[in-house]
């Protein structure tokens, strides 16, 4: 713990040292200082610990209904459209034809919320309510055998979902 703290603080000192140098260059009244206090923050950026998730909730069954209308024409029934699949592929990563899907590859379930909320349905982006995004997330996790058919997701339990490939990545700290 102490070591961690030390590393943490030395890193931070590195950064603040750099900041001081800039302060010297851009001292006092040379700083434009034009940033306005941002009171309303509406961006969606969700982390694996659940920070950034909005209120709302959705079930697998609600997600199934939504998926048929809003997603299936591009991702296929049950997410198995070739070239745009979202389901299956467990065990394929070591083969010459790996299928990287939500189920076989993605390390965090929170990423699914973040991505659907920001970037899907393609060409109608950001049109889903938070509850609809939870529902679509739940349904895709159900299709990948990660959630039960009765499951419901919300702000408090999504970050608890453990993905099959959770430990499949090596982080290169760059």
């Amino acid at each position: 713990m102490l070591i961690l703290l030390l590393i943490g603080s030395s890193l931070f000192m590195g950064i603040s040292y750099r900041a001081e140098q800039i302060d010297n260059q851009l001292g006092g009244d040379l700083k434009p200082g034009l940033g306005q206090h941002a009171l309303k923050l509406d961006a969606i950026i969700v982390s694996p610990d659940g920070v950034g998730l909005p209120k709302g909730s959705g079930t697998v069954l609600e997600g199934e209904r939504l998926y048929k209308v809003r997603c299936a024409h591009c991702h296929g029934q049950e997410g198995r459209q070739r070239g745009n699949r979202l389901v299956g592929g467990i065990g394929s990563l070591v083969t010459d034809h790996p299928k990287k899907t939500v189920g076989s590859y993605w390390p965090y379930a929170t990423t699914l919320y973040d991505y659907i909320a920001n970037a899907m349905p393609y060409n109608e982006e950001k049109s889903l309510t938070s509850s609809e995004v939870y529902a679509a997330t739940a349904y895709l996790l159900y299709l990948n055998d990660i959630l039960e058919k009765e499951a419901s997701l919300d702000q408090t339990n999504l970050a608890l979902v453990v993905m099959p490939n959770r430990n499949g990545f090596i982080e290169l700290a760059q």
């Binding site: 982390s47 950034g52 990563l93 070591v94 790996p98 990545f169 090596i170 760059q174």
Partner: peptide
Amino acid sequence: AYTRDETSKYTDLLKDGSAEMF
């Protein structure tokens, strides 16, 4: 944040099935 484009995409799958990230 482990966004979709630093997990599902833009990661480098190795022969043993693990993948490099960042």
